[in-house]
Design a protein around this nucleic acid. Structure first.
Length: 592
RNA sequence: GGGACGGUAGUUCAGCUGGUUUAGAACGCCGGCCUGUCACGCCGGAGGUCGCGGGUUCGAGUCCCGUCCGUCCCGCCA
């Protein structure tokens, strides 16, 4: 490093070979150890930690003995070999005998200690994020984030993509999550919106002949937080390409993801091409549209097995159009009644009315529905599910949608409790063939199930001649270890097909024209066929950092209530600011 | 908007079924001792409206109601 007033070396630099040198170091007082006539000071910066030592005879002894943790200091001293070395420290062979000490800034008593593990609530960490960020773990996480983003850029550019910027102040979009709105000063009652994603802009870039777009794009959505979803804003590796089919998009992005995950982890990574699972199959076999493939269990539909079994409850539900789904529990035949009843509690938590089970114990069958299974029925079940002696199985019965998801929750629980979930790997898959429309459960109306701008499979012909609920979309998600990384689609670039698609969902051509006028107009001037997707950068880094909480890989995340406790956002503003924007506040009524 | 769990010293937590002391411990902070520590050690000290408000009770950190705050989940996330 280039020496300056503050330092000749970082706190991670010094080795035995530096013995005898006079060095300058700057950093924070991590710890002091006061042994009477000798004081050790651990000096820390983002690169490491170096032990400084001062004796009673030093003119600095008095000042050093007063040093509080996290004081910012500059020291000058001679590097010497240690009498007692510390093998756990890179700089553990040497120490610096302090000749000069300058306190650059003092620190108040700390709200929490800057140690590897946080020993305080997340709220306190966020309020004092600048202290939290000094921890090794945060330094590593943010460095990883930077490296991952750099690698993504490099990999995209290498494939002929160009990075663009798109507006942050744009128009509110009628679809999707709630928008963050920005009032206009010049136009009373008019608002900008922060983009939920640069979706329209990237499509306009395609119409603009740019062909291969990408952006590490900030996205703003006013939605509530989850462990894997930071409220307010997040980043996507947004990409779009022209003159492509679904497979072309997959072939571009698979090596990027596989490459990045191999580059930044030592774990096994699904090699491209990633497995593709139809949406319908994902719900049947995994009970989720974001299956965690580290869990090897697969759900089966066993509705027909229960026909004529004499188990009236299930037979009745199935007769009314319900389904029975079975989750295998390999090797669980010897588990206690209590074990199965705990599983039932999981199913009930997920909303199931109850759970039946059957175990193939050696020489006999047991379980809540054993008496409904004669040898023949048991054989058919075992055959259908690949079960053998020693295995067990759980049954859930009810309406198809909810039952599928409850079986998914049960699959997670069984996999975990039987220790079947593979550790130390990243399992990718595509979820493809999403339905284009779905029926709203409350209103009975037909609605777009995902992006209304994705291309229906079969095009105009399908829209004109097929049952809308049978039409699939060129819409796809990429999932890694049960985390949805992104969704994307081949877009509908044809105004005629778009008009028909919206008509089925109850919108007129005029509606489309008004609500999506920019894109609608553009599509009348020779749009190229195009498609893309947008993997979440924060989620990728979260997976690579081995974190369950996305806020651990964001420097300044908001809390779950979408507040920034350090900056105090959101906050009220002055009346004159509101007046300038032609706004008044309607305060919510207190009480109920 | 709804559900579960939580809120006790600067921080993390203990405090059982309502009554034992003056609400404890660890870390941090302040003072003292200590020349090879590296989570240094030892001795001493300060630090509390038990989130807030109300109620039940002879008596509430503990039970009840309300309220605020936090974490996770559901809704939401084309």
């Amino acid at each position: 490093m280039k020496p300056n007033y503050y330092r000749t070396h970082t706190c991670g630099d010094l080795r035995a070979s530096d013995v005898g040198a006079t060095v300058r170091l700057s950093g924070w007082v991590a710890r002091t150890r006061h042994l009477g006539a000798i004081i050790f000071v651990d000096l820390r910066d983002r690169w490491g930690r170096t032990q400084c030592v001062v004796g009673e005879d030093s003119p600095h002894y008095a000042v050093v003995s007063e040093l509080r943790r996290e004081t910012t200091v500059r020291v000058v001293g001679q590097v010497v070999e240690r009498q007692s070395k510390n093998a756990e420290l890179d700089t553990g062979d040497v120490e610096v005998i302090l000749d000069e000490l300058e306190v650059l800034a003092t620190s108040d008593p700390l709200p929490f200690e800057v140690v590897p593990k946080p020993v305080t609530s997340e709220a306190t960490r966020l309020k004092y994020r600048f202290l939290d960020l000094r921890r090794d773990k945060m330094l590593r996480a943010l460095k990883l984030r930077s490296d991952v983003i750099f690698s993504l850029r490099t990999r995209m550019v290498a494939q002929g993509f160009t990075e663009y910027q798109t507006p942050i102040l744009t128009a509110s979009s009628p679809e999707g999550a709630r928008d963050y709105l920005v009032p206009s000063r010049r136009y009373p009652g008019h608002f900008y919106a922060l983009p939920q994603a640069p979706q329209i802009f990237k499509q306009l870039l395609m119409v603009g002949g740019q062909e291969r777009y990408f952006q590490i794009a900030p996205c703003f959505r006013d939605e509530d937080a989850r462990a894997d979803r930071s409220p307010g804003e997040f980043y996507q590796l947004d990409m779009e390409m022209s003159f492509v089919e679904q497979d072309d998009v997959f072939e571009v992005i698979e090596p990027v993801l596989e490459g990045v995950f191999r580059e930044f982890s030592d774990q096994d990574v699904t090699p491209a091409p990633f497995p593709r699972i139809a949406y319908k199959d994902a719900l049947l076999r995994y009970g989720s549209d974001k299956p965690d493939l580290r869990n090897p269990l697969q759900i089966s539909d066993v509705s027909d097995i229960f026909a004529g079994s004499g188990f009236g409850l299930f037979e009745g539900i199935i007769a009314k159009g319900g389904v029975c789904r079975a989750v295998p529990a390999p090797g669980a035949a010897d588990r206690s009644r209590k074990w199965w009843s705990n599983l039932e509690a999981v199913a009930k938590d997920a909303g199931a009315g109850g759970m039946a089970w059957l175990a193939f114990a050696p020489g006999k069958r047991k379980g809540s529905v054993a008496r409904f299974f004669d040898d023949d029925r048991a054989a058919r079940l075992a055959d259908a599910m690949g079960l053998s002696e020693g295995d067990g199985v759980c049954f859930l019965c009810g309406a198809e949608g909810p039952t599928a998801r409850q079986a998914g929750a049960l699959r997670d629980a069984v996999g975990q409790r039987l220790g079947l979930v593979e550790e130390g790997c990243f399992k990718f898959c595509w979820i493809v063939d999403y339905p284009f429309y779905e029926r709203d459960e409350d209103t009975g109306k037909i609605e777009f199930s995902h992006n209304p701008f994705s291309m229906p499979q079969g095009g105009l012909d399908a829209l004109l001649h097929k049952d809308p609920l049978d039409i699939l979309a060129y819409q796809y998600d990429i999932v890694c270890n049960g985390v949805e990384l992104s969704s994307g689609a081949i877009r509908n670039h044809r105004p005629d097909i778009m008009k028909q698609a919206f008509e089925i969902a109850g919108y007129s051509a005029q509606d489309v024209e008004e609500r999506f006028s920019g894109l609608w107009t553009a599509f009348h001037y020779g749009p190229p066929p195009h498609g893309g997707l947008a993997p979440g950068v924060d989620r990728m880094v979260m997976l690579l950092a081995g974190e369950k909480d996305i806020r651990e890989v964001i420097a300044f995340p908001m809390n779950q209530q979408a507040q920034d406790l350090m900056m105090g956002a959101p906050a009220t503003v002055r009346d004159d600011q509101l007046a300038e924007l032609h706004l008044g506040v309607v305060w919510p009524k207190k009480g109920k």
